[in-house]
Simulated assay, not measured.
Amino acid sequence: MIKHIFLLFIFTFTLVASVIKTPVISVDNENELVTIKIGKIDIGVSGFIVHKLAKDTSVILKDVVVVDFDKNTEIATLEMRDFEQLRQNSLPSGNWDVKVDDTVVLAFGYTRAMLIAPNEEVYYRVTKATDQVQWLHPDLFATMLSFNGHPTPLKEDFKKMSNTISVGLIFFYLDKKLFTVDAKSMTIINISDAPLVQNSIKLPFYSRVEEIDSAWWGEGSSELDNYEPYYYELLLESNPDNEQLISLYNKFQDKE
């Protein structure tokens, strides 16, 4: 039965899991934008730009996130951001600009994912449904949250986790739906049906870490007292125009 439940999820994951490499076709340095030519791409898919220095030497210049796609022209617009993943303040940084024909690498790390689930049974049913992804255990994230004193995970915590342990996708299980989210942009890539029975909830999410330490004050320092409402609102923060998400959230609120 579980194979049928997650057939759509597995199919969708296959579509987004492959790394995409394509050249930059235009650069707008003033607005920090580049464009690429591509047959199809989802808004919110992240990646980076590689600049070739010599035959066997290259450097990553910028992080990028897809912010627009014109299906008629097959032109995608990408927003450039500072590349933080391998930052080393003790070493000098280069002064190279992004150029036409530099290589954009998208969906890198999409084969490494983490699942935010309400309990152990849901966690294992989802993660055992496919072997197309390397699942990073949420214990890692819970440990990082404890170190930061955040028993309530913030948007920034997910991004830091993505950079620290190279997670490309985060899956959120909410109200019998599975949300596929780009870990860097926190943009929803897909929403799949996953009608599993949910008999219990472990806060802030399923992990084997018994308690997440809290800071004395500040955002994220309070204990999370609900599951679905909080993560719905967290996703809405980064996806305010996602009509499907808004509809699901409104239906959830009507049931409460």
Rank of each mutant, 00 (worst) to 15 (best):
A117G: 08
F9G: 02
A215C: 03
K40F: 11
V133Q: 08
I5M: 05
I75N: 05
K21D: 11
T111L: 13
A76T: 07
D70Y: 13
I165C: 06
K177A: 01
K251Q: 11
G220N: 14
Y231A: 03
L196F: 05
E121G: 04
D254L: 12
L115D: 06
I10M: 05
D139M: 13
A107W: 14
L178A: 05
V98M: 12
K40W: 05
I25E: 09
Y123V: 00
T14F: 10
T130N: 12
Q85N: 09
T22I: 09
S247G: 03
R87N: 11
S185F: 14
E210I: 12
E237P: 02
R81A: 07
S146Y: 15
S58H: 04
F11Y: 05
K3H: 14
V122R: 03
S200D: 15
A113N: 08
T77C: 14
Y110T: 05
F141N: 03
L115P: 10
A113T: 10
L136A: 03
N72C: 04
L178G: 03
Y173W: 03
D213T: 04
K128V: 04
L145M: 12
V133P: 10
Y206L: 04
D56C: 13
D102K: 10
D175T: 09
Q132R: 06
S185R: 08
N89I: 14
I41P: 09
A183V: 01
P240T: 05
N29A: 04
S247R: 08
T73V: 01
V181R: 06
F108H: 14
D193S: 11
T103R: 10
L236G: 07
E120P: 08
V167G: 01
F179N: 01
S222E: 11
N250R: 09
I49D: 09
L196D: 00
H137S: 06
I170Y: 15
I41H: 10
I188C: 08
V66C: 07
S200H: 15
L78P: 11
M1V: 00
P240F: 05
A215S: 12
K184Y: 12
H150D: 06
N89L: 15
V122I: 12
F205Y: 13
V67M: 08
Y123T: 00
S26E: 14
S222G: 02
G168A: 04
T143A: 12
T73E: 03
I188D: 07
L174R: 01
W135G: 02
Y227F: 15
S46C: 05
W216S: 03
R112V: 02
Q85F: 12
N250F: 06
I41W: 10
K99L: 13
V66G: 04
N148V: 10
N190Y: 11
I116D: 10
Y173M: 00
Y249G: 01
H51I: 06
K255I: 14
D28A: 09
K62M: 01
D193W: 11
Y123R: 00
E30Q: 06
E32D: 11
F147V: 04
V209P: 13
T22V: 07
A76P: 12
F252R: 00
V24T: 15
D70T: 13
T35H: 09
D63M: 01
N148S: 15
E121V: 11
G109F: 15
R125W: 09
N239I: 07
V34F: 05
D102V: 10
S58W: 03
T152L: 08
G218H: 13
V133I: 15
K255Y: 14
D28R: 04
K177L: 02
Y227I: 09
F205H: 05
E256I: 15
M144V: 00
F11P: 00
V167C: 04
